[in-house]
Amino acid sequence: MIKVSVRRAGTGIAAASSLLVAAGAPMGCTFEAQDAGEDFSAEAEQALTPGSGTLALDGWTGSLRVMLSASTTDEFLRAGEILQMELPAWLLWDTLYPGTALPNDLARLQKLSATVNVAVVDKGTTVSTLKLPVASFSGADPYALDAITKSFIVPAKADWLKFEILVTDAAAPGVSKTIGQNELTTLPVFGGDLPDKSLLFDSVQTTKRQRVIEGDDPIAGAKLDVGYSDWRADVLVDKSAIDLQIGKAQTVTRFGFAIVPIYGKLVHEVSYGVYFDDGGGWRPEVALTPNGASRFLGANRTAYEGTIDVPAKARRMAMYAHVKSYLVADYTGIQSITEKWYQDGQKVQKAEAYDNPSGAFTNYDFSVSGP
C-alpha cells in the first residue's frame, strides 16, 4: 500500500512531502506504477490532498498532446495527485495501422494495448520513470472506446512529466509503434519545490483571480514565483476598446478590389510592487519578464513572470500590478499596403492601468506563514 503525508492547506490544495510512488526505489530507476489505493489521505485526519485527475491522449487537433481532461481540483497538476491516462482506441489503431479503416468490433479493438512511460523530471533531470500498462477498457462504441492505464501518484519532487507510449496489438504480436517524447506535450507539476510556492494572477472572462497554486500562504524565507497572465492584462486595460489599426491595404474580393484596414499587435509591459511587514515597507516596482512557454499557461499564451524572495521575518504581504500596453506596428507579410500610419516596428503606448482589488490605494493582501 502506498502512503503519503500531506501538508495541511487552509485555503487550497495540499502538496506531498515525500516520494510517493514505489517508496524506497532508487532515483533514476524505471518501475511499474502501483495502484493508488483507496486510503490515500488516511494518515492525516482532515488534511487536504492534491486531488485526483485523468490525463487523456488527444489527437483531434492533428497533432498529439497529453492533456488534463478531468480533475477534482483545477487545471494544474500537483505533486501527490492521483492520475490515470485514457488512450482512445481509434488513436491507438491509427498509430499502428495508419490509413486503415477502424474496425467496428469492440472485441478486436480491445486486443490493442499500450504502456505509457512517464518520465519524472526534477530540476531538468529525469530522476525516475513510471511504467503505466493498460488495465481496462471503457466505452460502448469504437470511437468512444478508451484504453485506461493503471493509476499512479505524482512523485513529490516532480517539476515536469514527460510521456512516451508503446502501442502493441495482441492480435499481431510483431506489430508495435512508439510515440516518442518529442511527439507529446510535457506537463508541468506544482508543489515539488516546497516551501517555494507559485502565485498566479489570471482571469476567468472578466473576473480577476489570484491563487497560490500549491495552496495556503506564501512561506517566510522561501521563494514565491509570480505569474501574471496575458488575458488578465487584456481585461485590465480593456483591449477591446483600443484602436489597433496601423494602416490600410488593398485586397481582392469577388466584387473586385477593396481597401481594408490592417492591424498591429498589442504588447504589455507588466510590473509589480510588493510590501512586507518586515520593516522594509514597499519595495520599488519590479518588471516581470514575458514568457511564451510558461509553466503557468502553456503554449500559445504569454505569462509575465518573476520571483520574490519572501523575507524570513515577514508575516504579511501586499501587492499590486502595473500594466502598460503598446501598439506595435508590424507590417510583416502584409501585401499591397496603401497607407502606413506608423514606421515599421514603431511602438506606441495606448493604455496604462494599475491592478488593485478596489481601486487606488488598495492592494492584494496575503498572510505569510512562518518557515
Rank of each mutant, 00 (worst) to 15 (best):
S271C: 04
A222K: 03
V260T: 07
V252K: 14
D230G: 11
V310L: 09
I246C: 08
R315S: 15
R232L: 15
S294E: 13
S294W: 13
D309Q: 04
T253D: 05
S240T: 15
G247E: 14
R295P: 10
A303W: 12
V252F: 11
V226D: 05
Q210S: 09
Q210A: 08
A303D: 10
S271W: 00
G247M: 12
I262N: 00
T289F: 05
I259Q: 13
F255S: 15
N300L: 09
I262E: 04
S229R: 07
P261R: 00
R315V: 10
T253F: 02
I259D: 15
K313H: 02
T207V: 02
A299P: 08
R232P: 09
L288Y: 00
E305K: 03
R301W: 05
R232Q: 15
A222H: 05
D234C: 08
I242K: 03
I259C: 05
Y275I: 06
L244T: 10
K248W: 13
G227Q: 03
G247L: 10
A312M: 04
Y272M: 07
G306A: 06
P290Y: 11
W282N: 10
K239C: 09
A314G: 02
F257I: 04
P218W: 13
V204G: 14
Y320E: 11
V237W: 08
Y275G: 06
R315C: 04
G292A: 12
A241S: 14
F296R: 03
V267I: 06
S229W: 04
E305I: 07
D217G: 08
K248F: 15
Y275E: 12
V237A: 03
D217F: 14
E214K: 09
Q245P: 01
V237C: 10
R301H: 07
T207I: 01
D217S: 11
I213Q: 15
K208Q: 13
L266K: 00
Q210I: 07
V260W: 01
I242V: 10
I242G: 03
T206N: 07
G247V: 09
V274M: 06
A222F: 03
G273W: 13
P261Y: 04
